[in-house]
């Protein structure tokens, strides 16, 4: 019987962080990228969130691991070292190429990597803004129990 799926909501499991299973270099590249996309993403557990989702979904996995390999190959072509070996200036130079759709219009060889980066950006935003840190950053004040709902402050 698979109808009951709520075991995951039982408290001991809640605290458990998803495990990272991929190779260490890949993990580090992913971490670096997430941190570039949203400063604070690593501390908010975003790489683990991405690893969990792409570990379950072959399509996500293909996009992420393919994208990371593309990045290393392109860095080797350009700078003679993998992404992690590049200086921060070089890393940013490369990201500036793939973080904007317009660049892919000018240079079609960038189009797949642009799609990869957009996907990773999506996942990173999701992971960050669903974390304790991200929710605090947004200053969300709800999900509590009130005895009365006061309505809108007298400002509108």
């Amino acid at each position: 019987m698979k109808l009951e799926r709520r075991t995951l909501l039982q408290l001991p499991l809640l605290a458990k962080k998803p495990k990272i299973t991929s190779a260490p270099a890949k993990q580090d590249t992913l971490r670096t990228l997430c941190e570039f996309i949203v400063p604070g993403a690593t501390e908010a557990g975003v790489p683990e969130f991405i690893e969990l989702l792409s570990g379950e979904n072959a399509e996500y996995k293909r996009q992420i691991s393919g994208g990371l390999l593309w990045l290393d190959a392109r860095c080797r072509d350009r700078y003679g070292k993998p992404f992690l070996g590049c200086s921060q200036t070089e890393q940013k130079e490369l990201l500036d190429l793939i973080a904007f759709r317009e660049n892919a219009q000018k240079d079609p060889t960038l189009s797949q990597a642009t799609a990869f980066f957009a996907f990773l950006r999506d996942l990173t935003l999701d992971g960050y803004f669903t974390s304790r840190q991200g929710i605090a950053y947004l200053d969300f004040r709800g999900n509590s129990a009130l005895s009365e709902f006061p309505g809108c402050p007298p400002i509108l």
């Binding site: 570039f36 996309i37 949203v38 400063p39 604070g40 990201l95 973080a99 904007f100 759709r101 957009a118 950006r121 999506d122 935003l125 999701d126 960050y128 803004f129 669903t130 991200g134 929710i135 950053y137 947004l138 969300f140 004040r141 709800g142 999900n143």
Partner: peptide
Amino acid sequence: GPGMPRARMFHQVGLEAQGYGAALK
């Protein structure tokens, strides 16, 4: 209005703003 932050909430922002970093955040 400002509800509980959820996955997919900033999909459109990412699509429009593009880029990365503190400005995107």
